[in-house]
Amino acid sequence: MTRARSIGMGIVHLWPIALLLLSWDAWVVLNGYTSTVAPRPWFVIADVFTGFADYVPSILYTLGMALGGLVGGTLIGFVGAVLVWWSAALSGVVTPAALIIRSVPITALIPIIARIVGYGDPAVLASTMLICFFPAFVFTLSGLAAIPEAGRDLFTVLGANKLQVLSRLGVLYALPNLMVSVRITAPSAVLAAMLAEFLMGTSGLGALFSQARSYMDMERSWGTALVATVVSVLVFVGAQLMERRVESRLT
């Protein structure tokens, strides 16, 4: 019942999209734009449905890269935070490195990443991970810092070592926080994957968009944007459901 309700709430929360479609159409019609300037939403949607088979490989690719990067980046951020928590010496290395990497704009980093890890798939994945690791790092750290005093005392009197405190206490207190970070970064992961695909132009929704634009296929390129939005929202909703499950399991 609660699941049905949360899906219901998810649908209700989609109203901005309906509003977007309507104002988009009004904007095109009122300005009298031709389809090469801006297509009407209904033609774009028609292209998505009739040419869906053409979209599928790109959707799967982008989704795979986004999820892969999300999981990978989150893991890296998590491990980084655990290292910082574990030792002050490591903290002095990891924290500044994380901050510096985070401060450089991702668009500027993508060509450099491509140079280092290789053009194409590895670069797309690495860029996505780069977007996701920092929130995971920060959220995990705050979760580890928030282990209740009573829990620490308990583990002290039980004679637990540091690894046990981490694995039986710290990780479980950090996990709900980590899930918040996953929810927050999930849409950015899709965005980062698409941006890298767009710049690299090999495969995925980003590449599809860039190709459609170069062929002046406006329905297709706007359709790609539309599909990307839907994918992004779905990833977000999925992450939110997961976050709630973890939250209710652990607290």
Binding site: P148, D153, V157, L158, L250
Partner: peptide, 22 residues
């Protein structure tokens, strides 16, 4: 005192019970 804990020979019931919520 901490040596008893390290040897797992200490039992404590805290005032705020400190159970693991999960």
């Amino acid at each position: 005192p901490h040596e008893l804990a390290t040897q797992h020979r200490l039992g404590v019931a805290f005032q705020e019970h400190a159970l693991l919520p999960w």
